[in-house]
Protein backbone atom coordinates (compact mmCIF):
# COMPACT_ATOMS: atom_id res chain seq x y z
CA UNK A 1 0.00 0.00 0.00
CA UNK A 2 2.81 2.45 0.84
CA UNK A 3 5.63 0.67 -0.97
CA UNK A 4 8.47 3.02 -1.89
CA UNK A 5 7.04 5.91 0.13
CA UNK A 6 8.93 7.75 2.84
CA UNK A 7 7.48 9.08 6.09
CA UNK A 8 8.41 11.25 9.05
CA UNK A 9 6.43 10.75 12.25
CA UNK A 10 7.01 13.25 15.06
CA UNK A 11 6.85 12.06 18.65
CA UNK A 12 7.10 8.47 17.50
CA UNK A 13 8.97 6.89 20.41
CA UNK A 14 5.78 5.86 22.21
CA UNK A 15 1.99 5.93 22.33
CA UNK A 16 0.03 6.83 19.21
CA UNK A 17 3.14 8.02 17.31
CA UNK A 18 4.85 4.69 17.86
CA UNK A 19 1.83 2.76 16.60
CA UNK A 20 1.65 5.02 13.52
CA UNK A 21 5.35 4.54 12.72
CA UNK A 22 5.00 0.74 12.99
CA UNK A 23 1.83 0.60 10.90
CA UNK A 24 3.27 2.80 8.12
CA UNK A 25 6.36 0.57 8.03
CA UNK A 26 4.22 -2.59 8.00
CA UNK A 27 2.52 -1.19 4.90
CA UNK A 28 5.80 -0.63 3.09
CA UNK A 29 6.95 2.90 4.00
CA UNK A 30 10.45 3.86 5.08
CA UNK A 31 10.01 5.67 8.38
CA UNK A 32 11.92 8.38 10.23
CA UNK A 33 11.11 8.10 13.93
CA UNK A 34 11.37 11.52 15.58
CA UNK A 35 11.85 11.87 19.31
CA UNK A 36 12.60 14.79 21.63
CA UNK A 37 14.17 13.09 24.65
CA UNK A 38 13.42 9.35 24.66
CA UNK A 39 16.32 8.15 22.53
CA UNK A 40 16.27 4.56 23.83
CA UNK A 41 12.53 4.18 23.14
CA UNK A 42 12.89 5.65 19.64
CA UNK A 43 15.72 3.23 18.86
CA UNK A 44 13.49 0.33 19.96
CA UNK A 45 10.86 1.44 17.43
CA UNK A 46 13.55 1.67 14.73
CA UNK A 47 14.81 -1.82 15.58
CA UNK A 48 11.29 -3.20 15.45
CA UNK A 49 10.83 -1.72 11.96
CA UNK A 50 14.19 -3.02 10.76
CA UNK A 51 13.19 -6.47 12.06
CA UNK A 52 10.19 -6.29 9.68
CA UNK A 53 12.70 -5.88 6.84
CA UNK A 54 11.93 -2.18 6.37
CA UNK A 55 14.18 0.90 6.54
CA UNK A 56 13.97 3.26 9.51
CA UNK A 57 16.05 5.92 11.25
CA UNK A 58 15.70 7.74 14.56
CA UNK A 59 15.96 11.55 14.41
CA UNK A 60 16.16 13.79 17.44
CA UNK A 61 14.46 17.20 17.25
CA UNK A 62 12.42 19.52 19.39
CA UNK A 63 9.47 20.34 17.11
CA UNK A 64 9.00 23.71 18.81
CA UNK A 65 12.45 24.87 17.67
CA UNK A 66 12.70 25.94 14.04
CA UNK A 67 16.43 25.22 13.62
CA UNK A 68 16.01 21.79 15.13
CA UNK A 69 13.08 21.06 12.77
CA UNK A 70 14.93 22.28 9.66
CA UNK A 71 17.89 20.06 10.56
CA UNK A 72 15.63 17.05 11.08
CA UNK A 73 13.82 17.44 7.75
CA UNK A 74 17.12 17.96 5.91
CA UNK A 75 18.54 14.80 7.43
CA UNK A 76 15.47 12.71 6.55
CA UNK A 77 15.53 13.90 2.93
CA UNK A 78 19.27 13.19 2.68
CA UNK A 79 18.74 9.72 4.10
CA UNK A 80 15.63 8.71 2.12
CA UNK A 81 15.94 10.93 -0.98
CA UNK A 82 12.31 12.07 -0.70
CA UNK A 83 9.62 12.79 1.85
CA UNK A 84 6.08 11.74 0.96
CA UNK A 85 4.31 11.59 4.31
CA UNK A 86 4.50 13.83 7.38
CA UNK A 87 2.59 12.86 10.51
CA UNK A 88 2.52 15.69 13.03
CA UNK A 89 1.93 13.72 16.18
CA UNK A 90 4.29 15.12 18.84
CA UNK A 91 2.33 16.49 21.76
CA UNK A 92 2.49 17.15 25.47
CA UNK A 93 -0.02 17.94 28.21
CA UNK A 94 0.25 20.26 31.19
CA UNK A 95 -3.26 20.12 32.59
CA UNK A 96 -4.60 22.66 35.03
CA UNK A 97 -7.78 24.59 35.62
CA UNK A 98 -7.74 27.80 33.62
CA UNK A 99 -7.81 29.87 36.78
CA UNK A 100 -4.67 28.10 38.07
CA UNK A 101 -2.89 27.66 34.75
CA UNK A 102 0.54 29.25 34.66
CA UNK A 103 1.73 31.14 31.62
CA UNK A 104 4.60 28.70 31.11
CA UNK A 105 2.16 25.76 31.10
CA UNK A 106 0.18 27.51 28.40
CA UNK A 107 3.29 28.40 26.37
CA UNK A 108 4.90 24.96 26.56
CA UNK A 109 1.79 23.18 25.29
CA UNK A 110 1.08 25.72 22.53
CA UNK A 111 4.73 25.64 21.42
CA UNK A 112 4.93 21.87 21.01
CA UNK A 113 1.37 21.04 19.99
CA UNK A 114 0.57 23.94 17.64
CA UNK A 115 3.73 25.83 16.68
CA UNK A 116 5.43 22.44 16.24
CA UNK A 117 2.88 21.49 13.57
CA UNK A 118 3.42 24.82 11.79
CA UNK A 119 7.22 24.46 11.82
CA UNK A 120 7.27 20.85 10.62
CA UNK A 121 4.68 21.54 7.92
CA UNK A 122 6.61 24.58 6.68
CA UNK A 123 9.85 22.61 6.60
CA UNK A 124 8.46 19.73 4.52
CA UNK A 125 6.28 21.83 2.18
CA UNK A 126 9.19 22.83 0.00
CA UNK A 127 10.15 19.21 -0.69
CA UNK A 128 6.54 18.12 -1.24
CA UNK A 129 5.86 21.04 -3.61
CA UNK A 130 8.87 20.02 -5.69
CA UNK A 131 7.72 16.41 -5.71
CA UNK A 132 4.22 17.52 -6.73
CA UNK A 133 2.83 15.11 -4.15
CA UNK A 134 2.60 14.75 -0.42
CA UNK A 135 0.47 13.75 2.52
CA UNK A 136 0.35 15.71 5.75
CA UNK A 137 -1.60 14.18 8.62
CA UNK A 138 -2.03 16.16 11.82
CA UNK A 139 -2.98 14.46 15.04
CA UNK A 140 -5.49 16.76 16.74
CA UNK A 141 -7.83 15.57 19.48
CA UNK A 142 -11.53 15.20 20.06
CA UNK A 143 -11.22 17.74 22.87
CA UNK A 144 -10.15 20.31 20.24
CA UNK A 145 -13.68 19.92 18.88
CA UNK A 146 -15.64 19.54 22.13
CA UNK A 147 -13.60 21.39 24.78
CA UNK A 148 -12.50 19.78 28.05
CA UNK A 149 -12.20 21.25 31.54
CA UNK A 150 -8.64 21.35 32.85
CA UNK A 151 -7.10 21.43 29.39
CA UNK A 152 -7.45 25.03 28.17
CA UNK A 153 -3.93 24.99 26.70
CA UNK A 154 -4.19 21.52 25.12
CA UNK A 155 -7.68 22.17 23.72
CA UNK A 156 -6.68 25.56 22.27
CA UNK A 157 -3.66 23.98 20.57
CA UNK A 158 -5.64 21.02 19.21
CA UNK A 159 -8.43 23.29 17.91
CA UNK A 160 -5.70 25.43 16.35
CA UNK A 161 -4.36 22.36 14.57
CA UNK A 162 -7.77 21.84 12.93
CA UNK A 163 -7.76 25.41 11.56
CA UNK A 164 -4.15 25.06 10.45
CA UNK A 165 -5.05 21.80 8.68
CA UNK A 166 -7.80 23.52 6.67
CA UNK A 167 -5.60 26.47 5.65
CA UNK A 168 -2.64 24.29 4.71
CA UNK A 169 -4.98 22.04 2.71
CA UNK A 170 -6.21 25.05 0.72
CA UNK A 171 -2.72 26.48 0.14
CA UNK A 172 -1.12 23.23 -1.00
CA UNK A 173 -3.99 21.55 -2.86
CA UNK A 174 -2.81 22.80 -6.26
CA UNK A 175 0.48 20.97 -5.72
CA UNK A 176 -1.21 17.62 -5.12
CA UNK A 177 -0.56 17.69 -1.38
CA UNK A 178 -3.41 16.67 0.91
CA UNK A 179 -3.64 17.75 4.53
CA UNK A 180 -6.00 16.13 7.01
CA UNK A 181 -6.43 15.93 10.75
CA UNK A 182 -7.25 12.92 12.89
CA UNK A 183 -8.99 13.60 16.19
CA UNK A 184 -8.52 10.71 18.61
CA UNK A 185 -10.96 10.32 21.47
CA UNK A 186 -10.10 8.44 24.65
CA UNK A 187 -7.17 6.23 23.59
CA UNK A 188 -5.38 3.82 25.91
CA UNK A 189 -1.86 5.36 26.17
CA UNK A 190 0.59 6.55 28.82
CA UNK A 191 -0.95 10.02 28.41
CA UNK A 192 -4.41 8.81 29.47
CA UNK A 193 -3.13 6.17 31.92
CA UNK A 194 -2.44 8.86 34.52
CA UNK A 195 -6.05 10.07 34.58
CA UNK A 196 -8.05 9.69 37.76
CA UNK A 197 -10.34 6.59 37.85
CA UNK A 198 -13.42 8.78 38.38
CA UNK A 199 -12.55 10.85 35.33
CA UNK A 200 -12.05 7.67 33.31
CA UNK A 201 -15.40 6.27 34.48
CA UNK A 202 -17.19 9.46 33.49
CA UNK A 203 -15.53 9.50 30.09
CA UNK A 204 -16.46 5.87 29.40
CA UNK A 205 -20.11 6.73 30.06
CA UNK A 206 -19.90 9.31 27.28
CA UNK A 207 -18.61 6.82 24.68
CA UNK A 208 -21.38 5.04 22.74
CA UNK A 209 -19.05 2.14 21.90
CA UNK A 210 -18.35 1.93 25.67
CA UNK A 211 -14.63 1.20 25.48
CA UNK A 212 -11.30 2.95 25.10
CA UNK A 213 -9.73 3.16 21.68
CA UNK A 214 -6.37 1.59 20.91
CA UNK A 215 -3.36 3.24 19.30
CA UNK A 216 -3.91 0.89 16.34
CA UNK A 217 -7.33 2.45 15.75
CA UNK A 218 -5.55 5.74 15.05
CA UNK A 219 -2.67 4.17 13.12
CA UNK A 220 -4.96 2.42 10.65
CA UNK A 221 -6.75 5.66 9.72
CA UNK A 222 -3.43 7.51 9.38
CA UNK A 223 -2.19 4.74 7.06
CA UNK A 224 -5.30 5.12 4.92
CA UNK A 225 -4.85 8.92 4.75
CA UNK A 226 -1.17 8.43 3.84
CA UNK A 227 -1.97 6.18 0.89
CA UNK A 228 -3.21 6.63 -2.66
CA UNK A 229 -6.78 5.52 -1.95
CA UNK A 230 -7.47 8.71 0.04
CA UNK A 231 -6.34 11.11 -2.70
CA UNK A 232 -9.68 12.98 -2.92
CA UNK A 233 -9.86 13.73 0.82
CA UNK A 234 -8.29 16.99 2.06
CA UNK A 235 -8.88 19.57 4.77
CA UNK A 236 -10.92 17.15 6.86
CA UNK A 237 -10.88 16.31 10.53
CA UNK A 238 -11.88 12.72 11.20
CA UNK A 239 -12.90 11.72 14.71
CA UNK A 240 -11.79 8.32 15.98
CA UNK A 241 -13.58 8.30 19.29
CA UNK A 242 -16.09 5.48 19.57
CA UNK A 243 -18.85 7.94 18.74
CA UNK A 244 -18.09 10.31 21.65
CA UNK A 245 -18.62 13.45 19.56
CA UNK A 246 -21.05 13.50 16.66
Amino acid sequence: MLNGKTALVTGASRGIGRAIALELAKNGAKVAVNYAGSEAKAKEVVEEIIAMGQEAIAVQANVADSESVTGMVKRVIEEFGSLDILVNNAGITKDNLLIRMKEDEWDAVLDTNLKGVFLCTKAVSRQMMKQRKGRIINISSIVGVSGNPGQANYVAAKAGVIGLTKTTAKELASRNITVNAVAPGFIDTEMTEVLDENVKGEMLKAIPLARLGSTEDIASLVTFLAGDSSSYITGQTINVDGGMVM
Binding site: R126, M129, E171, S174, R175
Partner: peptide
Protein backbone atom coordinates in the same frame (compact mmCIF):
# COMPACT_ATOMS: atom_id res chain seq x y z
CA UNK B 1 1.74 33.54 -4.94
CA UNK B 2 2.68 29.87 -4.77
CA UNK B 3 4.11 29.99 -8.32
CA UNK B 4 6.41 32.83 -7.22
CA UNK B 5 7.55 30.79 -4.20
CA UNK B 6 8.33 27.85 -6.48
CA UNK B 7 10.12 30.09 -8.94
CA UNK B 8 12.35 31.36 -6.13
CA UNK B 9 13.02 27.76 -5.03
Amino acid sequence: SLDVVELVM
